[in-house]
Design a protein around this nucleic acid. Structure first.
Lengths: 144, 144
DNA sequence: CTTGACCTTCCCGTGACTGGAAGCCCTATC
DNA sequence: GATAGGGCTTCCAGTCACGGGAAGGTCAAG
C-alpha cells in the first residue's frame, strides 16, 4: 500500500505519516522503487496515533501508548497512569485559560468600544501599580 | 539602564527582551560600549508586553496593542475588537480541551487500572470502527 | 592583575508538523 | 516513442516564542 492510500484510510496527511516514520513511530517496508510499502498493521498504528493525538496526547505519550498497545501482557494501570497525567495537564490548561478568560472578559465589558480614545483595556495593561499583592513583602511571585 | 535591571523591573528574562528588540517591539538605544541603553518608556512597554502576553495575546496582537497604546487618538473599539477576537479564541480552546477532558476522563473511569492487560483506553484508541470517539469527531483539533 | 558578574552576538534546539523545490517512477494517451 | 499528469522520494526552510550555551568583550572590586 502506498502512502496516498494510507493517508486516506488513516485520515492523516502524507507529510505527517513521513514524519511519524522519521521519528520512529512506524517503520513501513520499502518497495524496490523506493516507495514506502505499508502493511495493515501500519495503518492500524496510524489510526491509533490519530485518535490519541486528537485527545491531546503528546508524541512521546503516543510512543509509550503504542508500546503498551503492542505489549499484550501490559498492566492497564500503566496506560491509566499516562492518561491520568494527561488529564491533569488538560485540567491545568483549562484553569489557565479560564483565568485569562475571566480577566479579559471583564476588561472587554468595561470598555465602551466606541470612537473615543478612552480605553480601560489599555489602561489596565499599562497601569503603574503591580497587581495588588495581599502580602507584598519581599518575595515576588510570578504567575505560571 | 542595562538589560539586567530592566529584566528585574519588567519581570521578563533578558533573552525575551533581546528577542522583543529583534522583532521590533522595542528599540532601545545603545551605549558606546555596545550595551543596550533602555529608557523608562522601554521598561513601560516591556511591562505592558508582559501583561498582555500573560493574558495570552499573541505577539502580533501585542504589536497592534502597542501601536494603539502609542496612538493617543485611537478608538477604544479597535482595542476591544482585538480583545474580543482573542476572547473568542480562548473560548474555542477551552471548548476543545473540555471535549478532550470528557472523553479522556470517561476512559480513565472505565479502566480498572490494575495488573491485568485488559484496558478500555487502548481498546477505544484501536477500535475498528471510526465513529465512537466523541472528542475525535468532526474537527481534528490539534492542541497548541 | 585577576576574578567574577554582566553584557554582546551567533547558532542550535524545542513540538509537531507544513510548505515547497528538485527530481524519480508509473500509467495513459497521442 | 514522446509527453503529460499524478504520485512518490528526499532535503531544506519555516512556524511560535523563546531557551541554552558557546565564545568573547566590558566593567568594578579586591
Amino acid at each position: 500500500m502506498n502512502i496516498g492510500e494510507v493517508a486516506k484510510r488513516s485520515d492523516l496527511p502524507a507529510k505527517t505519516i513521513r514524519y511519524y516514520e522519521e521519528i520512529g513511530l512506524i517503520t513501513p517496508l520499502r518497495d524496490s522503487n523506493g516507495y514506502r510499502a505499508f502493511r495493515e498493521s501500519d495503518v492500524h498504528k496510524l489510526i491509533f496515533l490519530g485518535r490519541a493525538r486528537a485527545l491531546g496526547f503528546s508524541i512521546e505519550d503516543c510512543r509509550a501508548l503504542l508500546a503498551l498497545w503492542a505489549d499484550t501482557g501490559r498492566a492497564s494501570a500503566d496506560v491509566r497512569a499516562i492518561a491520568r497525567q494527561h488529564l491533569a495537564e488538560i485540567d491545568r490548561k483549562i484553569a489557565d485559560l479560564s483565568r485569562m478568560r475571566g480577566t479579559l472578559s471583564h476588561l472587554v465589558d468595561c470598555c465602551a468600544g466606541d470612537d473615543r480614545p478612552d480605553c480601560p483595556i489599555l489602561e489596565q495593561l499599562s497601569a503603574e501599580e503591580d497587581a495588588p499583592a495581599p502580602a507584598a513583602e519581599g518575595t515576588r511571585s510570578r504567575p505560571a
